[in-house]
Design a protein around this nucleic acid. Structure first.
Lengths: 139, 139
DNA sequence: TCCTTGCCTGACGTATACGTCAAGAGGCTC
DNA sequence: GAGCCTCTTGACGTATACGTCAGGCAAGGA
């Protein structure tokens, strides 16, 4: 049988090496290995080499987004658990998820508001400077 | 003339010690001194003791807000300059302000969008968990 | 077979942002 | 005027998030 001629149509079974993954997100391999050492990623191995699935790639995307919005790596761990553990039904877990998400939501809403405040201030400064520049160049 | 019996009505001449300032913002004195060592604050001195004006206090507020929205201290320095230097009219300065504010605005808009994305995901997880909890407690 | 390339695991280095003593000076109070 | 409190300046310590070698293995090409 020839099963080498096409990828599966439905489930994405694409695999990535660490170099590809690093390039895809513009981070270094060191960074990816560092996240793994902190328990944020668990790629399969082929011999000693790391092999990443599409799910691993998505996960790295989440990690990086969490970072840019200001989470520390130690926080990102529980953060990712929230994404992964929603299906779980035990009561304590559900309450944990409910509490933690509420907490994070409040935190992010506050941060977003502070960003909005800063944005409007910056816009005032920006357009003000532009006007003053235009005023001194009447041509 | 007697000019000692009342504070100016318009300009706020209230002064603060470092302890008050620290308490006002919930930071340590060490943090405030650290920011000064990085050139972000320039309080007056009475002898060796630092004395902060209302303007200094406002400035510290800006610094802390800049921090919570993800700026590094080295960035905050230019950031504060934008706020303070708007009045300046030299062309190079105006262009600098225009460019820097545009840059920061784009950056913050991106960050805000990532926060919004994360927020809606978290809200889905949050309400989903709540529903599942309710479903197992029919009472 | 040798060489280059890519990935691996430590191990140490670095920048940021403070925390934590240590030691001393000035003021207030009992 | 002795003790206590607050503030000051170093100086060193610490946590986070990687960067940067060093040394080694393994596969593929000339």
């Amino acid at each position: 049988m020839d099963d080498t001629h096409a990828p599966h149509p439905a489930s994405d079974t694409t695999l990535y090496g660490i170099a590809e993954l690093a390039r895809a997100y513009g981070v270094t391999q060191r960074t990816i290995r560092f996240y793994e050492s902190k328990g944020l990623l668990h790629p399969q191995r082929v011999g000693t080499q790391r092999v990443y699935t599409e799910a691993d790639k998505t996960r790295l995307g989440l990690i990086l987004r969490a970072k840019t919005i200001g989470s520390k790596i130690s926080e990102i761990k529980t953060f990712l658990d929230l994404y992964g553990r929603e299906g779980e039904g035990r009561e304590r877990q559900l309450n944990f998820v409910i509490d933690k998400t509420a907490e994070k939501i409040a935190e992010l809403e506050d941060k977003r508001d502070q960003i909005e405040t800063t944005l409007s201030e910056l816009r005032v400064i920006h357009s003000g400077a532009k006007e003053r520049l235009a005023a001194r160049q009447p041509r």
